[in-house]
Simulated scan of single mutants.
Amino acid sequence: MLMQLPSRRNSFRLATTAAVAALAVLTPAAGALAATGAPHTAASGTRPAGHPEGGGQYVRTVKLADGISIGKIYKLGDHHYREEGFADGSSFGSIEAGPAKPYAAGNLNGMITVLDNNGNVVSWIQRTSQGSGPHTEKLADGETVAKVSKLGPQHHKATFSRGGHTLGSVEADGDATPYGVTRIGKLWIVLDLDGGIASYVGRPIPTRA
């Protein structure tokens, strides 16, 4: 339940979904993240900040939600960005969003980071859980409802509604799409493979020199 670390070098568990619209960052609010589950260990082969392995043109640096880590943003092309996370000067992974997959999410021991294909980044620490598997829960804005259904092993779908009106849906399905990610207004939503949901409300992270 949203407690994974990277399973391969230089990649937070990558997650992208062609879903709803552009982004913004957060103010911690109720959402869902399992506080249980065995977190992976950090990816090996860390390297110093300022040496991007994934390439691209450096755009800016942002401070992530744990107050220690930073994210460096690189532009790879039109509506195509990569964010690489660093702690203590060493990389712990990257996520990438592009025209075909406008959102990407990574989870480092409960610190969730989301990137969109315009280079916007959001980051928050998820502390609460409302469950996993098939279930219904209210998200961080206090108004949007997520109904999670199981489509198969490690394959869940979340459908979002507000006031009885359907707003959209995302799926998380295996390694290809380990997280379903979207934004509805200022509400950011990340669906995990086991049906757990993390959600936050907020604005883009300010640029840090």
Rank of each mutant, 00 (worst) to 15 (best):
S161Y: 03
K186L: 12
D192R: 00
L26S: 14
A34V: 07
L23N: 11
G164H: 05
V170W: 01
V170H: 01
K72P: 01
T207A: 15
A65F: 09
P204S: 15
L139N: 03
K150W: 01
N107I: 12
E53A: 14
R13H: 04
A104P: 04
V201D: 05
P153M: 10
V181T: 09
N109H: 15
Q57G: 11
A22V: 14
T136M: 03
A15H: 00
K150H: 04
G37V: 09
K150C: 02
F12L: 07
W124D: 08
M1F: 10
L115N: 06
I197V: 15
K157Y: 01
A87T: 07
A30E: 14
S199H: 03
P206G: 15
T36L: 13
D194H: 06
G142F: 09
N118S: 13
Q4H: 11
T41R: 15
G31V: 09
I184R: 05
K186P: 13
H79T: 14
P39M: 14
S149T: 15
V190G: 02
T177H: 08
T113P: 01
G185P: 06
W124V: 05
P48Q: 08
S161G: 05
A18C: 11
M1V: 11
N120F: 11
K157T: 02
G89T: 03
R13L: 05
N109R: 13
I112P: 01
N109W: 14
G152T: 07
A42E: 12
T36A: 13
H79S: 15
S91W: 00
E83W: 07
L5P: 10
K72H: 12
V25W: 10
Y58G: 04
P52W: 04
V181K: 07
E84S: 08
S129V: 01
G164F: 08
L191I: 00
P48K: 08
D192F: 00
A30C: 11
R13M: 05
E84A: 10
I189H: 01
T144W: 07
H51I: 07
L64D: 00
G152W: 02
S44F: 13
I112K: 01
I189S: 01
M111F: 02
V121Y: 09
D141Y: 06
T46K: 08
V25C: 13
S11R: 00
P52D: 03
P52E: 03
G31I: 08
K138W: 04
M3R: 14
V59D: 11
G196V: 01
R47A: 11
V62W: 09
A34I: 06
E137A: 08
E171L: 04
F12Q: 00
K63L: 13
A24P: 08
D78F: 13
P6H: 08
A97Q: 09
V201Y: 06
A146P: 03
H165C: 03
A15E: 00
Y74P: 04
L26K: 10
